[in-house]
Simulated scan of single mutants.
Amino acid sequence: MDVKKVGIAIVVIFVLFFVISQPQNSADFVTGILSALGDVASSLILFLRNLVS
């Protein structure tokens, strides 16, 4: 068995365990990540607009 496949399987099992055992914390975590990515995208767009003008 490939080490990469075993690593991916362990990560998937851990994520499933976390989602099943603590669904509210999992949802808060995902919401936080998406919010941070949205902030990064907004900042990048603002930077590019200021760069062009």
Rank of each mutant, 00 (worst) to 15 (best):
G38Y: 09
A41S: 11
A9G: 10
S43D: 06
L48M: 11
G7A: 13
V11D: 08
L44W: 01
L16N: 09
L48P: 01
A27R: 15
K4V: 15
S43M: 13
A27L: 15
L34G: 10
V15D: 01
N50L: 00
F29V: 03
G7V: 06
K5S: 11
S53G: 14
S21R: 01
A9F: 12
V12Y: 06
I33V: 09
T31Y: 13
F17M: 14
N50H: 04
L37G: 04
V6W: 05
V52K: 07
L44C: 10
A27S: 14
L48N: 05
K5C: 12
S35D: 05
A27E: 11
D39V: 10
L51P: 02
S35T: 15
F47W: 10
F47L: 02
D39S: 07
G32Y: 15
L16Y: 00
I45P: 05
V12A: 03
L46V: 06
L46C: 12
N25E: 03
I20V: 02
G38Q: 08
I13Y: 07
D2F: 06
F18Y: 13
G7K: 04
F17I: 14
L16C: 06
V52D: 11
V19W: 02
M1D: 05
F47N: 04
L16S: 07
L16G: 06
V15E: 02
F17V: 11
Q24T: 06
G38H: 04
V52Y: 11
S42A: 08
V19E: 00
S53W: 07
S21K: 02
N25A: 04
V30N: 11
G32T: 06
L16H: 08
